[in-house]
Design a protein around this nucleic acid. Structure first.
Length: 102
DNA sequence: GCCATGGCTAGTA
DNA sequence: GCCATGGCTAGTA
């Protein structure tokens, strides 16, 4: 696993229950501010193997990004089960739920 | 090296 | 447009 990938995995694993982070934010914290799409790739390829809380990652507007209906609902339910309020439009209040690691 | 991949995003129009 | 990876391929040594 490459350094950037490793940092991304670690960051995602450390998102607390009931909180979320955005793709771009994770990329920034990992040291590469414009590498949001790489975060997508990591999520795609390593969620299972590394038990990543993939549902705690949303886009910059705080919205669930998944298009696929089944996956969208899985994420929705996971978030709600952690006490996060999700609007009908799939939007989460970042001011309230976004996690900011030190 | 080259190229596809990908659940994005800042910043125009 | 951004950009880190993995997989594949031509083309050297």
């Amino acid at each position: 696993m490459q350094p950037f990938t490793k940092r991304v995995v670690t960051i995602i694993q450390n998102i607390p229950e009931g909180r979320v982070m955005t793709y771009g934010q994770i990329a920034s914290v990992a040291g590469s501010p414009r590498a949001a799409r790489q975060v997508v790739r990591v999520l795609h390829s390593m969620s299972k193997k590394h038990q990543l809380p993939w549902h705690r990652v949303v886009n910059s507007k705080g919205k669930i990004a998944l298009q696929d209906d089944a996956s969208y609902h899985e994420q929705l339910l996971s978030l709600e089960s952690e006490g996060i309020e999700v609007g009908l439009n799939g939007v989460i209040d970042l001011a309230r739920y976004q996690y900011h690691p030190d």
